[in-house]
Simulated scan of single mutants.
Amino acid sequence: MNTLALKAKAAQIRMNLLKMIHGAKTGHTGGSLSNTDILTALYYKIMTIDPADPKHPDRDRFIASKGHSVESLWCILADRGFFPKEDLDTFSRFGTKLIGHPNNKVPGIEMNTGALGHGLAISVGMALAAKRDGKGYRAFCLMGDGEQAEGSVWEAAMAGAHYKLDNLIGIVDRNRLQISGSTEDVMGLDPLEDKWASFGWNVVSLDGNDVEALVNAFAAAPEVPGKPTLIMANTVKGKGVSFAENVPHWHHHVPNDQELEQALSELTALIESYRKEEEAQ
C-alpha cells in the first residue's frame, strides 16, 4: 500500500470500530481511534505475519499492552483475514472470543493483555528468545501513556537495554489523556522522551497519526545497533472524529445513533478525499 491507501485504510478501520462499539454498546473508543494509524502502519506495511499461518515461528510479534483499546486491533485482524469479518458483530456479546481485551484464543493474538504494565516485559522475553534462538523476528509492544506510571514498565525498559535488544520496538500512544483526565494532572510524565533515553533506549518522537512517518520509523529500527527503539507516537485521542478529539469523556463513550452517523459521514468524506488525491497523482 502507498501512503494514501494506508490513510484510507486507517479511516475505514475507524469506521468499522465505531460501528462495532455502537452495536455492542461498550468499548474504549478514544484510545482505539488514536492508535489506529499505528496499527495500520504495522499490520499493512511493516510486520512479517501470515493470517494463514498465525503461529509461524518466524513471524513478528505484536503485544497490545494497552489491551483495553482492542477495538482497532480486532477490526484489523478481521480485515487481514485472521478470522471472519462477521465475527466483529459478536464483539462483547455472550460467549464471544472477541472480548474487550486481547484474547489469545483468537488467531493473531500472542497473549492476553489489559492489566497495564505487563506487555513490555513479555515483549522483552520474546525479543531475547529471538536473539538466543538466532531468529530474525522483531517484537513490537504498544503501550498507553497512562500506563507509563506502572513500575513494571521501567523494569522491562531496563532489561531491554541491558540485553541490547535492538529487535525490540516499544511504542507509546502519547495522546496525553487517560480515563480520569490529563496524564500530566494524574501522574506527570514529561520529559518522557528523556526518561526512556536515560534507560538506554533509542527514542524517536513523531506524529503518531502520520502513517508515513510511522512506516519510516518502524522500517528504520534499529537505528542504533544494540539499543531497543522507543517510538513516542504523539497522537490525538479520538482521532478522526472531530467532536471526539481530545475529549476525555470519549475514553469509553459509546456513540449514539446521531454521533455515529456524523462520525461515519466525516470519515467517508476523508476516504473520498484520499481517493481523489490518488487519482490526481
Rank of each mutant, 00 (worst) to 15 (best):
D89F: 10
F83N: 09
I21H: 00
F62T: 06
L18P: 00
R132G: 04
V106R: 05
E71D: 03
P107Q: 10
T48F: 12
D79K: 02
T40A: 08
G30K: 07
G119H: 07
K55E: 14
D133Q: 15
G67C: 02
L18G: 00
K25I: 08
A129N: 13
G125W: 11
P107L: 05
M111R: 00
D133P: 07
A129E: 10
G134Q: 08
L116F: 13
K45V: 07
S34W: 10
T36N: 09
E86C: 06
I49V: 15
A41V: 07
F83R: 10
E86F: 07
H22W: 08
I46T: 14
V106Y: 01
F62A: 06
H118V: 11
L42P: 06
A115N: 11
F91A: 03
L98W: 12
G134A: 10
L120K: 06
D89Q: 15
I99V: 15
V70P: 00
L17W: 03
L39D: 00
R93F: 14
L18C: 02
L88Y: 01
N104C: 00
I46N: 05
A78G: 04
Y43C: 03
A129Q: 12
G134M: 07
G125K: 13
G119K: 03
H101Q: 13
K85R: 13
T96P: 13
A121M: 07
A139P: 13
